[in-house]
């Protein structure tokens, strides 16, 4: 994390949509049944690298997301493993019912790679900033929902999805984000979170690009004598309940951070778990029941309090 007042370090940044495209290409030989579908957005979803390397395994469905989901369902029934790509708004939003009825209900082996999630879509504005996809996808029985934090986790999630039998939704971002998981011994497992910073006073549970903000906030809090534990959650469903309960037991206070509506997303999932197992005070950071707007990704994240400074301020108030 580069901090304004700290030593200037070179932080490698990669958009998780890039990681997605690269992972598909890298895994193509190992998973010969993998095919990739797009709805005229291959250049933006970054599946273009796969398309160039394996043109016969890339299917452009045109601008028709509902049909694309159905085609993926049909392909999976012939033994293919389709990765369906579009913006989160269209994959989870427009095609929600197709995902539910044509993929979720028959529990087909279809993977959905949804890019451009959340407000970091930036300048395109509210119509394209999907802050509802985690909530929508969580409600589908049997659907695995993942939201990787960085390049390393995104690639690991794509591999894990291909190894897993059943429907999976993975959310990727448009904006380049710091690589934080390139550590020796990094392991990824569907349904497992990780404590990325230990602490004793408060737990910050974060997903996606907000893990980096949470780590930044934890650094600022430490300077003021507040010891924050940061739990990184990539798989929102099934949720790693144990890691959250254990951390909450230790700290007694939980803040959730996500680039998503506070209704139905990570925060709600954490509250579901804690209210049933260990009633704990929770503050949910995210989009507070509002639409986004145009602006640069960085400016939006700042405005909506999801950067390190915003999370830091919110946690401090909560203490």
């Amino acid at each position: 994390m580069a901090e304004k007042n700290g030593q200037e370090t070179v932080v490698k940044k990669v958009a998780t949509r890039e990681s997605y495209g690269n992972a598909l290409k890298e895994l193509a030989e190992e998973f010969p049944q993998l095919v990739v579908l797009d709805a005229d957005l291959a250049a933006a979803t970054k599946t273009e690298v796969f398309k160039k390397a394996y043109p016969e395994r890339h299917i452009d469905c045109g601008i028709a997301e509902a049909n694309m989901m159905g085609i993926a369902a049909g392909l999976s029934l012939t033994g293919k493993i389709p990765f369906v790509s579009s913006f989160a708004m269209f994959a989870a939003g427009r095609a929600f019912e197709q995902v539910r009825n044509s993929i979720g209900y028959p529990h087909l082996n279809v993977k959905i790679g949804a890019t451009h999630a959340g407000i970091t879509v930036g300048e395109d504005g509210a119509t394209h900033q999907c802050n509802e996809d985690i909530a929508l996808m969580r409600t589908i029985p049997g659907m695995v929902v993942m939201c990787p934090a960085d390049d390393v986790e995104a690639k690991a999630a794509v591999r894990a999805a291909l190894e897993y039998e059943g429907p999976v939704y993975i959310r990727f971002g448009r904006a380049a984000v710091p690589v934080i998981n390139d550590k020796p011994g990094y392991k990824f497992e569907i349904g497992k979170g990780s404590v990325v910073r230990e602490g004793t006073d408060v737990t910050i549970v974060a997903t996606g690009i907000c893990v980096d903000s949470a780590l930044g906030a934890a650094g600022k809090l430490a300077a003021e004598g507040i010891s924050a534990e940061v739990v990184s959650i990539c798989t929102i469903k099934p949720l790693d309940e144990e890691i959250i309960i254990n951390s909450a037991k230790k700290t007694g206070k939980v803040v959730t951070v996500e680039e998503h509506s506070v209704i139905g997303g990570l925060g709600s999932a954490v509250c579901d778990t804690l209210s049933a197992n260990l009633p704990t005070r929770v503050k949910k950071l995210g989009m507070q029941d509002v639409f986004g707007e145009s602006g640069s990704a960085a400016a939006l994240v700042q405005k909506y309090g999801l950067d390190a400074e915003g999370v830091y301020q919110s946690v401090k108030e909560f203490m």
Partner: peptide, 20 residues
């Protein structure tokens, strides 16, 4: 061969099967 009933969706699955 496929769950169906929400109108308009079955044909897409059939098209996917034919492509597969």
């Amino acid at each position: 061969d496929m769950s169906s009933g929400s109108l308009g969706q079955g044909i897409s699955a059939a098209v996917g099967m034919a492509l597969g």
